[in-house]
Design a protein around this nucleic acid. Structure first.
Ligand SMILES: [Mn+2]
Ligand SMILES: [Mn+2]
Ligand SMILES: [Mn+2]
Ligand SMILES: [Mn+2]
Lengths: 230, 230
DNA sequence: TTTTATTATTAGGATACCCTAACAATTTGT
DNA sequence: ACAAATTGTTAGGGTATCCTAATAATAAAA
């Protein structure tokens, strides 16, 4: 059986790999992500190598083996299913679910996860728009992309955020931006790359470049220029 | 924050105290209960003493302080609320819930427990008939007693089991005895103290003395002789 | 009341996780 | 190319958990 700590290491390696596919997942990256020190991480990486859960060397960084990937994607699956359950069945808010799911994801009972997954109707996305792996670990496809990669005039729908960081979620609440909102890109302010949007109520919203990078949307118009612009 | 291990020690000290109020909770008892060795337990007992969570000496054994009791009763509360939730909302069976609740009880979120407690309508007893402490840690009263303490002719209702051990629960299923069943004591077989019962379908059931000690019931007749017989 | 089991404790280790200090290897920027 | 900043590694510890072996204290039996 894998410890709760080990599951978090594998999940972190998975997540850092997803966030930036170019950058190698080094010991320092992981240390920052997990709020630990590099020697601590290195020690664990060596043990994960011994257990055949990752491959590791300085140039390639940490890479999950098939076995390690399966564990990691399963934890991600549990996390997102619990977030969805907490949000939809237990009426927790968008920004509360992550913390609790961080704990619930380590509860080891396939039957329990299967049950709540089925109660939810086998959802494909969690409350932050993150894809939920199915039982075989396969992620649903979606054409989510950062709002920052939009062209003027694009009409899109909010599908999620790239990190479910509580501060950011509350920031969005302040801007009155919620999941599934339809937004129109009115202007891209060249000075600082911030974006002026129009919501469904025709209210004007200005979102910073940084926030626009973390807000994930999908174009609504079939042939939106956003798709070819990048 | 208390670790998951520490919570289990405190819960074990509480439980061993409830099971047998005469017997002192010694290091060896705890070691057997927790499947650990006495020196391991002793080490932890010393640390719990240092933290002010228990008092301990050879003659009195381990005794929870107010602080330790509050933690223990809260874990018991979480355990029983989760068992009830798993049983009633997620359709787990009587015998499945304990194992999963052993994990869920350590999830630290008052809001989560409050929510499921409220969804369940603030239940007073879990699926095994165990009393659920309220938010202030107060246990509901009940006149549950072992079936073994019955007189012939007693009509009683099954309210629970004294240990929610999976093997025993399955044994009861085999005997077709379930929670809330109404049973009549037909005969107490003096040879081995086993008990012949009649269920609602007038089927005859023989239950061993050992099982009768673990099966908790309450008399249905207002002035049942069981009450005065003991 | 001796002898015999049971408990309680101590001593000495092992493993999982974490850290600081110090050094080596790279990468960056000039 | 060279100094500076960033990363990767080793060395040496510390705490929490657990264990076996051995010893001391008690309790139970004979
Ligand atoms: Mn999350
Ligand atoms: Mn999420
Ligand atoms: Mn239980
Ligand atoms: Mn129970």
């Amino acid at each position: 059986m894998n410890s709760f700590k080990e599951e978090n290491y594998l999940k972190a390696i998975y997540q850092l790999g997803v966030i930036d596919k170019e950058n190698v997942v080094g010991a320092t990256d992981l240390a920052n992500w997990l709020a630990l020190k590099p020697p601590t991480v290195l020690e664990k990486l060596n043990s994960l190598v011994t257990k055949g859960l990752i491959n590791y060397n300085k140039t390639d960084g940490a890479i999950l083996t098939k076995k390690g990937y399966e564990i990691a994607i399963n934890i991600v699956r549990r996390h997102r299913i619990w977030e969805t359950y907490l949000y939809r069945q237990l009426n927790f808010s968008w920004s509360e679910v992550h913390e609790i799911a961080e704990q619930l994801e380590h509860v080891n009972s396939d039957k329990l996860i299967d049950k709540i997954y089925s109660i939810l109707g086998n959802p494909e996305f969690d409350p932050h728009g993150d894809p939920i792996p199915n039982k075989r670990g396969v992620l649903p496809k979606s054409d989510r992309r950062p709002l920052s990669r939009s062209v003027k005039g694009c009409k899109c729908v909010v599908l999620g955020v790239s990190h479910d960081n509580e501060a950011f979620l509350n920031y969005l609440s302040d801007l009155k931006i919620a999941l599934n909102d339809k937004l129109t890109v009115e202007q891209i302010i060249s000075y600082d790359e911030s974006i002026r949007l129009l919501n469904q109520k025709k209210e004007s919203i200005i979102i910073s470049a940084k926030a626009a990078e973390q807000l994930l949307v999908a174009c609504l118009k079939p042939n939106c220029e956003c798709k070819t612009a990048n």
